[in-house]
């Protein structure tokens, strides 16, 4: 699996505050990683650091053979990183189709392919972003990120606040993305036992430090580790 993303001893945070301490990880093309930890442990900050929205203090970040720290924040989305933030970040005043096409870049993810993945978006293509339910908005946010044809998709708590029925449906879609898309994926979620089966690797953060880096399956099968780091969310 050719290397896509490498972090070496990365320290980052906001202003003078350090949130991430000495983080290292490697992700290959098409690989998948569960990024786990309790609230406030630095998961979203890691995404913000990759996207240039947090202050990178030291350490190397290489993405697709480039030094990512030298790529301006505004250019990172077009350098192969697709971010689906918790806030979903869709345009309420554009239609579903406009939301998708306005960010489109050339590549395997076309409007038709996104509609195949999310048939509901096709049904709602003429509706405005602000007319969508929470589940539809999450699908649109994921569809927008795919239209950028990223090599790495960052999903920040995509199931947060959604009803169980929609959570199950999104899990199926994420499983298809991790298994068949050829795109690398980092998935942040609170519910470790639900998402670990979907990814090959896992990274657990505790107070900004990596306390586990390895196979998802090993972590999933080690109840003591899961309970120790993730508490009730692991049950």
């Amino acid at each position: 699996m050719p290397e896509l993303l490498t972090l070496e001893n990365v320290w980052a945070g906001y202003g003078d505050a350090v949130v991430l301490e000495d983080i290292s990880l490697t992700l290959g093309e098409g690989d998948s990683l569960s990024l786990l930890g309790r609230n406030g442990m630095g998961k979203t900050t890691l995404f913000s650091t990759l996207m240039g929205a947090a202050r990178h203090r030291s350490g190397a970040i290489r993405f697709a053979g480039r030094d990512l720290t030298r790529v301006p924040a505004h250019a990172r989305a077009h350098s192969g990183l697709g971010w689906v933030p918790q806030e979903r970040d869709i345009f309420p005043s554009l239609t579903v189709e406009e939301n998708l096409t306005v960010v489109a870049t050339r590549g395997p993810w076309t409007l038709q392919r996104v509609y195949e993945m999310f048939p509901r978006l096709k049904e709602r293509r003429g509706n405005m972003g602000n007319q969508l339910s929470g589940g539809e908005q999450q699908m649109l946010a994921m569809g927008r990120a795919l239209m950028l044809n990223p090599r790495l998709l960052l999903l920040d708590e995509p199931m947060e606040g959604l009803a169980p029925l929609i959570v199950q449906e999104l899990m199926t879609i994420i499983q298809r993305l991790t298994e068949d898309s050829g795109m690398a994926i980092i998935l942040v979620e609170q519910h470790a036992r639900q998402i670990l089966p979907l990814t090959r690797q896992a990274l657990v953060l505790e107070r900004g430090k990596a306390v586990y880096r390895g196979d998802s399956e090993t972590l999933l099968n080690d109840r003591a580790l899961l309970d120790g780091w993730l508490g009730v969310v692991a049950h």
Binding site: E123, S133, G134, A163, L165, E169, T172
Partner: peptide
């Protein structure tokens, strides 16, 4: 059953479904 589940999700009114 996966198809059936997806069909249910598409019919159940928001916020529980789509």
């Amino acid at each position: 059953f996966r198809s059936l589940f997806t069909r249910i999700v598409s019919m159940v009114p928001a916020p529980h479904g789509l």
